[in-house]
Every structure is written in C-alpha cells, then in structure tokens.
Amino acid sequence: MKLIVILAFIGILGALAAAGLFMFKNGKQESRGPNMARALALRVGLSVALFLFILLSYLMGWIEPTGLPMQR
C-alpha cells in the first residue's frame, strides 16, 4: 500500500516538474501550451486517482486510521 502511494506521489511530482520544464524551455506561447497543459492535466488526474484510491482503500478496510492520542 505504501509503495503505491509513494509511486503516485512520484508521478505527481514528475508531471509537475515536466510542466515546469515545458514552461521554461519553450519561450513561445504556442509551442508550450499543449505540452504544459497535458502535463498539468496528468498531474490533476493522478492526484484525483490517488485520493479515490485512498478513499476506496479505507472503505474496503485495507487501511485504517491510527490517529493521535488526545492529551489534556
């Protein structure tokens, strides 16, 4: 489970880095637009998929919240 979440975070950060690279690499607005938008859309899709996977994992009982002890 931890491996899947770590890989998803790496994918999200990779897509964000790719979008930043497309933004700085190409000076023209026309050439950077589609590539940068595709990378950002991939990042958003991966983020939503990770959230849904964590929610599904919780509902299926694969993960359980540990919580922090309350101190007074």
Rank of each mutant, 00 (worst) to 15 (best):
W62P: 01
W62Y: 13
G67K: 02
L46A: 10
L68I: 12
G33A: 15
M70S: 10
L13T: 08
R43L: 09
M1E: 04
W62S: 07
S57D: 13
L13C: 07
A18Q: 07
L59E: 07
W62D: 09
R32K: 15
L21A: 07
Q71K: 10
I54C: 13
G45W: 02
G33F: 15
F53A: 15
L7T: 04
F9C: 12
S57N: 10
K28G: 10
G67E: 00
V5G: 00
I6T: 06
R43D: 08
P65R: 05
A49G: 06
L52C: 11
V48W: 00
F22W: 07
A18K: 08
S47A: 14
L42F: 04
M23F: 15
K25Q: 14
L13W: 04
A49S: 11
P65I: 05
L46W: 01
P65M: 05
G14M: 03
A19D: 00
L21S: 04
Q71P: 02
R38H: 05
K28E: 14
K25G: 05
L13R: 02
P34I: 08
W62I: 13
K2Y: 04
K25T: 14
K25A: 15
L68W: 06
G61W: 04
Q71R: 09
M1N: 05
L3T: 11
A49W: 00
L50M: 14
N35T: 06
S47I: 01
I10V: 13
F24P: 01
G27R: 14
L55C: 09
F53K: 04
L59Y: 05
G61M: 06
K2L: 10
I4L: 09
M23N: 14
G67N: 04
V5F: 11
W62E: 09
G45Q: 02
I54M: 12
Q71V: 13
A15W: 00
E64N: 09
L59M: 10
V44K: 10
A8H: 03
V48C: 03
I12V: 10
N35F: 13
